[in-house]
């Protein structure tokens, strides 16, 4: 575990906590894309299936449980919570996210480390995570007023993968040259998608 990766995980955790705070404190999910939240839930479920089979560390297991339960809780709130669900911008959140799931799945079938169920699920989760933010970014561009918490949520979410890229660079020079092109390329695409958001976020 290096500082970049730890910073990345903490930034990721913080982004989820900011979103939970926004929904809990304001009892509103206006400006939040439910589709992006559903995609993240699929990402975590597909990637953290090894939660019960491979024990890596307490930290690793705890964080996996936190990410799975928090993403499920957010989706539940946006679908079932009587007050919150009313504030969901259904007609604004129109991105066809099924296309993203299908594309990521096809890519995972073609490009993976090994053609095994677990490796294909892992690659699927990496590809899907790279594009999962798209519905949210589209919603932000449509939405007139982006409230601070939602903006901060997206900012931390974009920053976390940038830290991971630094982590991969660090590991490349310290642990030898693993082939991690799936993570590399997806991480670059993922962070790149935030470029215009970061541009406007800092200009505002």
């Amino acid at each position: 575990m290096n500082a970049f990766r730890f910073l990345g995980d903490m930034t990721h955790l913080f982004s989820v906590l900011v979103l939970l705070l926004k929904i809990y404190a304001t009892k509103s999910c206006s400006g939040v894309s439910r589709k992006t939240q559903e995609l993240y839930m699929v990402v975590f479920l597909a990637r953290y299936m090894d939660l019960f089979t491979d024990y890596i560390s307490l930290y690793n297991s705890v964080m996996k449980v936190v990410f799975i339960t928090s993403s499920a809780a957010i989706v539940w709130c946006m679908r079932r919570h009587p007050q919150v669900r009313r504030t969901y911008d259904k007609e604004q959140d129109t991105f066809r996210h099924v296309v993203l799931v299908a594309a990521a799945f096809v890519l995972a079938l073609i490009f993976n480390e090994r053609f095994t169920f677990r490796e294909i699920c892992w690659a699927f989760s990496i590809y899907l995570e790279a594009v999962a933010i798209l519905p949210q970014l589209v919603l932000l561009q449509r939405g007139r007023n982006v409230d601070n918490l939602t903006g901060q949520y997206v900012f931390f979410l974009g920053a976390y993968r940038a830290f991971y890229i630094l982590n991969w660079i660090y590991r490349y020079f310290t642990e030898g040259h693993h082939s991690r092109w799936i993570s590399w390329l997806s991480g670059l695409v993922q962070t790149g998608l935030y470029a215009d958001f970061f541009y406007y976020y800092f200009l505002r």
Binding site: D9, H12, I56, N60, E119, E175, H178, R180, S183
Partner: peptide
């Protein structure tokens, strides 16, 4: 093998 490493990342 290479892919064992990245399973230690979240």
């Amino acid at each position: 093998e290479t892919s064992s490493y990245d399973k230690d990342e979240l």
